[in-house]
């Protein structure tokens, strides 16, 4: 079972800015992949909506190529590092292809300061700055990769657990790690979990998580009820809520929620209704 929904934020609607979040999913007989990416705001990141889209594509392309051999007799850290390399190569290539097809136009950069223009000329890839988060259920593995301030959580027996230890108070307010930074790989988390031990995963952008102030509150008020909705196949309700969270009741930022659950998850643990 999986769910993805991205909705534009109220602030973006008011200011006439496009939605810079992007999510995607992939599903076949063997695997299910969901993504959740948040293109940066700010003048320099003028194509971050495309950056977020490419991040989703890149993550799916890389995770689709993972096969049983990948994990066979391999050190987890070696596999993780290869996924970092592949994700960066894939995203870089998509961005470069886009830049070649549609070079930055005068009109796009006219409101930038000289300093911003210079930094963009040195590193055009900055225009596409984005976070990335992706989760894949494949055989006995649950793979999660993430760079930036998006939320990544695991579900286990009706509870929500952070997938990664947090870096020390680094990513607050509008500070986040990004696929466009020169040392992106160093900050990219890759988790390869034993799928038997978990029920699934939840990914979201900071627009979803910020209105809840504490993780306990987020778990209780959003994560668990949302998983319940997916299990009950009432995704429509959840979708509608995400739209409202972005446009009306949240912090005004774009919102993305992606959920991945094993098909045999115990309904009762997440849903109050059964």
């Amino acid at each position: 079972m999986f769910f993805t929904k991205t909705a534009i934020g109220g602030h973006h609607i008011k200011s006439g800015i496009v939605c810079q979040d992007y999510s995607a999913s992939y599903h076949d007989a063997e695997r299910t992949i969901v993504t959740s990416c948040d293109g940066h705001g700010g003048a320099v990141y003028l194509r971050s909506d495309r950056g977020a889209k490419f991040a989703s594509y890149a993550a799916i392309n890389v995770l689709r190529n993972v096969n049983r051999r990948t994990f066979y007799r391999r050190r987890t850290e070696d596999v993780a590092n290869q996924l970092r390399v592949q994700l960066l190569c894939e995203w870089n290539a998509l961005v470069e292809r886009d830049l070649a097809a549609r070079p930055l136009r005068k009109g796009e950069v006219k409101h930038l300061s000289d300093e911003q223009l210079f930094s963009l000329r040195m590193e055009p890839v900055k225009a596409y700055g984005t976070t990335v988060a992706a989760a894949m259920l494949y055989g006995s593995k649950l793979v999660i990769l993430s760079l930036g301030d998006g939320g990544c959580f695991l579900f286990r027996r009706g509870r929500m657990i952070p997938a990664f230890e947090e870096e020390d108070d680094e990513q607050v307010a509008n500070l986040t790690n990004s696929l466009c930074q020169s040392d992106a790989a160093e900050h990219m988390h890759v988790g390869i979990f034993d799928a038997d031990r978990f029920d699934g995963a939840l990914l979201c952008t900071d627009g979803v998580i910020n209105p809840y102030q504490t993780l306990d509150n987020f778990e209780r008020s959003l994560a668990i009820p949302a998983a319940g909705k997916v299990i009950e196949h009432r995704e429509r309700k959840l979708s509608d809520f995400i739209v409202r969270l972005g446009g009306e009741i949240g912090v005004g930022d774009d919102v993305t929620l992606s959920i991945l659950l094993k098909d045999d998850v115990n309904r009762r643990t997440y849903s109050k209704e059964v």
Partner: peptide, 11 residues
């Protein structure tokens, strides 16, 4: 005037 997240804080 603005909200947090994305382009919030700095601008």
């Amino acid at each position: 005037s603005t909200h947090t997240g994305a382009d919030g804080a700095v601008n």
